[in-house]
Nucleic acid binder design. Structure first.
Lengths: 341, 341
DNA sequence: TTGAAAGCGCTAACAT
DNA sequence: ATGTTAGCGCTTTCAA
């Protein structure tokens, strides 16, 4: 009763009839070209083309058991981390002639669980970014359907990791190399599993070079919280601070400024991620560039491998790149007063 | 040869056998409950439930011609405008038991056209946000498949519009009401169709109240461009400026600051959108809040109507809400010097 | 109220 | 190298 006729799409039988061959031959001409004699194949293809034949994904799916759909679950799209990630995956999936079914968990582990459960019966494979689900659940799902985790490691499950800890360590190296001896790390949201490894990496680096790490927080990853924590940071007697993410750092920049702490003269500031705004702040902030496009592609490629029945292999680790900008500076020689150059 | 057994899902035939009825009866028990005697229906449902029966979407799709898929096309996910929009649509679609197939055009009209073309043969309906395609093309697509446009109007095609022009006018009213007489509007990217209506609305308002509108730009919607244009704005002799979007405003804030122009004492600043960061700047910025969740829901509901074969009806217009914050202040009485309070 | 059977458009054995 | 046939799992006439 709808108004749309769905363009009476030409079916494989139509093509077969016109070409004077069997449906199966048409089918083969596309799926197993080598099984069809070259002239026949070309003729079929030409005719199909002329007729505007588009094989029905649905029929194919019913017949093969593969839908061509990849489920993608992300916790939110408000965090600028996920936009580029999703975009990259969509592009990569497209090249494999797959479509992305996107679902957003709204940062709720419970909702994510429901979503993954449902999705797992309706797609060929699943990519879950920054999963909040329980390990046991993810393990169970991975047994039922090819699953790639992004930004989360669970046992030997297929995963793509962004090695922020080593990136954060690189920031520390950079700072320590410039004479900083007492650094502050502002940690993120209370439950974040991202912080522990970063802090561990920082402590290792610090010990190796006689520097010291102070941890502030945890705080929510918001600009406001960053502003507030600036108080603590300013009082911590550090010459450099590394923020959990861009929002934190935006807040820090602002909070430190209003407290008369100059960046970078008094305190160097760096961010553990690289939301674009940080390149246009005053001063421009030293950041960790996270190659999210790369991560997205890697995830799709890995899923593709699983779909082919190959073993997951080791997690793919994407290394962030340190981008040094104006907000990090050589530490003042000890004893020199703030304000002097 | 894959490792995943896809959990031998129970089919409708399995349920039928166990329940001792025909497949068709099981099918009816779910799709047309009234056609099945209550006791039979309940028994079937119970058994199906116990067996963990999940009807195959694919089989159903092949049989009915409806996939349950909605195609969603957005130009990018890097712009914070689209995250909440997509999220809202996904949620709304989920409630209708539909899945969202997301595709990103990367701000390319050509790519968008390709995508829409492809998608239109593989989904039940299409939502296209901020389309860059040509009108003629969109009209053609709308004839073939239910299509809802968001943030773009093409003839009588179904659409959801965010009435930024009237919102911008509300900003102007607010400013003019506080004594401002010369306002600057910083326009967005060169080709943007968003600017003309806004500027028209502004001029109308200005004429009505003896105020004056200066247009700066067009400039790319980036922080950097905002910083640069601050020069022009500072020299324009205006007491208030309205920025194309949040990035522009972030840039303006910064650019004006470094030029010694105080906000809001010297110049009031407002933004035509409400990316979250603007509430934590110093000063917090007066913005137009865009109810994107509402827009997303409206789009899905509208598509649902089209899918039922109903007429599109008039475009749904979502009105932005003015959020007044610290960055807009009463204009200085004429003649009073900067620096005085 | 229920059952039987056709068919959606394709793929993949199996046959030739 | 190509044709024949049997499904894939569901919905939907049509019969009973």
């Amino acid at each position: 009763m709808g108004h749309h006729k769905k363009g009476q799409s030409v079916s494989i039988s139509d093509v077969a009839r016109v070409a004077g061959v069997a449906k199966s031959t048409v089918s083969r001409a596309f799926i197993h070209p080598t099984l069809v004699a070259a002239p026949t194949r070309e003729r079929i293809r030409r005719i199909a083309d002329e007729m505007g034949f588009r094989p029905s994904r649905v029929a194919r799916a019913l017949s093969t058991g593969r839908t061509g759909l990849v489920g993608l679950v992300v916790p939110t799209l408000s965090n600028p981390f996920f936009g580029p990630l999703v975009a990259a995956m969509q592009q990569a999936a497209e090249e494999e002639d797959r479509q992305i079914v996107l679902m957003i968990s709204e940062l709720s582990a419970e909702r994510e669980t429901r979503i993954v459960e449902r999705l797992s019966r309706e797609v060929d494979g699943l990519i879950v970014a920054t999963s909040l689900c329980e390990e046991a659940f993810l393990r169970k799902v991975a047994k039922e359907i090819p699953l790639v985790l992004v930004d989360r490691k669970v046992g030997r499950l297929a995963s793509v990791l962004i090695d922020t800890p080593s990136g954060v360590a690189a920031i520390a190296d950079h700072l320590i190399g410039m004479g900083h001896r007492r650094l502050c790390y502002v940690s993120g949201p209370p439950g974040s599993w991202a912080d522990a490894p970063r802090i561990a990496a920082l402590r290792t680096r610090a010990e190796q070079s006689g520097a010291e790490i102070v941890v502030a927080g945890p705080i929510p990853p918001t600009v406001d919280a960053g502003i507030e924590i600036a108080e603590t940071v300013a009082a911590a007697g550090v010459t450099a601070v590394i923020g959990y993410n861009s929002a934190t750092v935006l807040g820090l920049l602002h909070g430190l400024g209003t407290r008369g702490v100059r960046v970078p003269e008094d305190v160097s500031v760096a961010s553990a991620d690289d939301f674009i705004l940080l390149q246009s702040t005053k001063p421009a902030v030293t950041v960790l560039h996270l190659p999210l496009e790369e991560a997205g592609q890697a995830a799709v490629r890995m899923l593709e491998r699983l779909l082919r029945g190959e073993r997951p292999g080791r997690p793919v680790v994407i290394g962030p790149r340190l981008v040094i900008r104006e907000s990090t500076l050589r530490a003042r020689p000890p004893g020199q007063q703030a304000g002097q150059s």
